[in-house]
């Protein structure tokens, strides 16, 4: 039972589908805990469930014009770049507007790798990857691009939207890079990045692996053309995010899981029936 996670976040797997959490088929896992469950019925249910899910994934990929073999390759011909200020020109429902726009092929989409590289550790404020104009007479100039987002021709990219636009002294936490060197070598080691989509059950909504402080506008990072593909939400129109996604706290479970689940949690191998074991 070596169900290794192919989605280890330090080396993101490009074959990740954008919308696996929407899996409509819940029968497999929900029936697992049933007490009246019989083996043969279970196998059938699982097998059919898997087939349905697999088919659904393939259909989704095809519908999105993504080659399952190479998700970067698109069957659709590249579209012309959208009007640069489309996002700004549309009525003021920025997150929804942005969510409706898809990333333009050819524009530099933020990768998860780059997203992490910009942060010293998960949760650290990212550095500024571009030049900033100091002494321009405005303290919150950053917000002219980063509050609403939109396409920036200079960088051929969509500006990421800040999840905390009320904080206006931006350079207090976000600083540019003037050099790649270090003053002295550092032995700093960041802890592993949080694993994405740690759903408790297949298809259940993934918990939130990060702190919510200053990050309560979920769509700022999880929707829209500037969002990192791997963390983009497939249903940005559902705005009450915390209804289904809850922060994953570092606390013991309220009630302990069944002995089976406990073993699985510990990644222990399933017990082999002992021939010496006496019947109760």
């Amino acid at each position: 039972m070596s169900t290794q996670n192919t989605q280890h976040t330090d080396a993101p797997n490009p074959s990740a589908t954008p919308s696996p959490t929407d899996t409509p088929n819940l029968s497999t896992t929900s029936s697992l805990s049933g007490e009246g469950f019989t083996v043969s019925y279970g196998f059938i249910a699982i097998a059919s469930g898997m087939m349905l899910m697999g088919a659904w994934v393939l259909v989704t990929l095809v519908l999105q014009g993504i080659d399952p073999q190479d998700p970067h390759k698109s069957h659709n011909p590249p579209k012309a770049a959208p009007v640069p200020h489309l996002a700004a020109a549309l009525p003021a429902t920025p997150t929804l507007t942005n969510a409706l726009l898809s990333a333009t092929p050819g524009s530099s989409v933020r990768s998860l790798q780059r997203f992490y590289k910009q942060r010293a550790y998960s949760g650290a404020p990212p550095h500024i990857p571009h030049d900033i104009l100091e002494h321009n007479g405005q303290i919150d100039a950053c917000l002219s691009c980063h509050s609403q987002g939109g396409y920036v021709p200079k960088y051929n990219a969509f500006a990421p939207i800040t999840p905390h636009p009320t904080y206006t002294n931006c350079v207090q936490c976000h600083v540019p890079q003037r050099t790649q060197s270090t003053f002295r070598p550092s032995a700093w080691k960041a802890s592993p990045r949080p694993q994405l989509r740690r759903t408790a059950l297949a298809g259940s909504p993934p918990p939130i692996p990060h702190d919510l402080h200053m990050r309560t506008d979920c769509n700022a990072c999880h929707a829209g053309p500037a969002a990192v593909k791997e963390i983009r939400v497939p249903h940005p129109e559902r705005s009450n995010c915390l209804q289904c996604h809850v922060p994953r706290k570092q606390v013991p479970p309220f009630r302990s899981l069944s002995p089976l689940h406990q073993r699985l949690e510990k990644n222990a191998p399933p017990p082999t029936p002992s021939p010496q074991r006496k019947r109760p």
Binding site: N5, A16, P20, M53, R197, R198, E265
Partner: peptide, 16 residues
């Protein structure tokens, strides 16, 4: 095993 291979995006809390 089948599920996580079929749906690479989904992972399970008890995997690791």
């Amino acid at each position: 095993t089948a599920a996580s291979q079929l749906i690479p995006g989904v992972s399970f809390a008890w995997e690791k």
